[in-house]
Simulated scan of single mutants.
Amino acid sequence: MISFHSEDIAIKIQQKLKLKNWLKNVIAHEGFSLGEVNYIFCSDDYLLKINIEYLDHDYLTDIITFDNSEEEKLIEGDIFISIDRVADNARTFEVSFEHELKRVLVHGILHLCGYFDKTDEQEKLMRFKENHYIALFN
């Protein structure tokens, strides 16, 4: 089950059912089954507090993914997304807010599937996967 929540902001997610089905298809295509994934939309301030408290990182980020999976090949987790960062990144990369939101939504799922973006090589693969799946949404 995929759920969308908001913490300290108000946001209306467009095409919720289509987004959920798309994310379920990404999970299946990567060879996993869906357990429970919660997306929590929040502000920069809210996500910064989480970043400091849980990861000891004192900087803004667009997404933090907590993997709650206990079984192999079962995707479960909590994905926190800063809507402030998504909006800023959309302006920076000159894409729509909706496009950037899709990128971040699938980015969290890819983390839960075992993809990382710490090295240049990992980041290159992550971007490739993001772009591939965004193209499938459209």
Score class of each variant (00 low, 15 high):
84 D>C: 09
84 D>T: 03
104 V>Y: 00
54 Y>N: 14
90 A>V: 02
7 E>I: 13
54 Y>C: 08
116 F>R: 07
34 L>S: 05
23 L>N: 05
80 F>I: 04
32 F>D: 13
6 S>Y: 12
89 N>R: 08
17 L>F: 15
115 Y>R: 00
58 D>R: 05
27 I>F: 03
132 H>Y: 10
42 C>D: 10
56 D>K: 08
125 L>M: 14
2 I>Q: 05
74 L>T: 03
30 E>M: 11
122 Q>D: 13
132 H>C: 14
118 K>C: 09
88 D>A: 06
5 H>W: 11
129 K>W: 08
14 Q>K: 12
28 A>L: 10
83 I>H: 05
40 I>M: 10
106 V>T: 08
72 E>D: 11
103 R>M: 04
21 N>H: 15
92 T>W: 09
53 E>L: 08
119 T>C: 03
52 I>Y: 03
13 I>A: 10
7 E>C: 12
97 F>S: 04
33 S>N: 12
20 K>C: 09
90 A>I: 01
18 K>F: 12
44 D>M: 10
108 G>S: 11
63 I>C: 09
36 E>W: 09
1 M>P: 13
22 W>C: 11
73 K>H: 10
40 I>F: 06
66 F>E: 02
110 L>H: 02
10 A>Q: 12
91 R>C: 05
59 Y>I: 08
9 I>Y: 05
2 I>G: 06
126 M>I: 07
100 E>G: 04
45 D>A: 08
34 L>N: 09
35 G>F: 06
1 M>Y: 11
23 L>W: 04
124 K>Y: 12
107 H>G: 02
13 I>C: 14
13 I>D: 14
107 H>E: 05
8 D>A: 13
120 D>M: 13
112 L>H: 00
35 G>S: 15
48 L>V: 06
99 H>R: 07
48 L>F: 00
67 D>T: 04
90 A>N: 03
28 A>H: 14
8 D>H: 09
66 F>S: 00
78 D>Y: 07
19 L>S: 14
131 N>V: 10
27 I>P: 08
18 K>G: 15
104 V>K: 00
11 I>Q: 15
11 I>H: 11
120 D>C: 11
82 S>H: 02
74 L>Y: 01
40 I>G: 07
17 L>A: 13
91 R>D: 09
108 G>N: 06
91 R>E: 06
31 G>L: 12
29 H>G: 15
40 I>Q: 07
113 C>F: 00
7 E>Q: 12
41 F>D: 03
67 D>K: 03
16 K>L: 12
62 D>N: 04
130 E>H: 05
137 F>G: 13
98 E>L: 01
95 V>W: 01
41 F>Y: 03
133 Y>C: 05
99 H>P: 09
119 T>P: 07
70 E>Q: 07
11 I>G: 13
41 F>T: 01
79 I>A: 00
73 K>F: 15
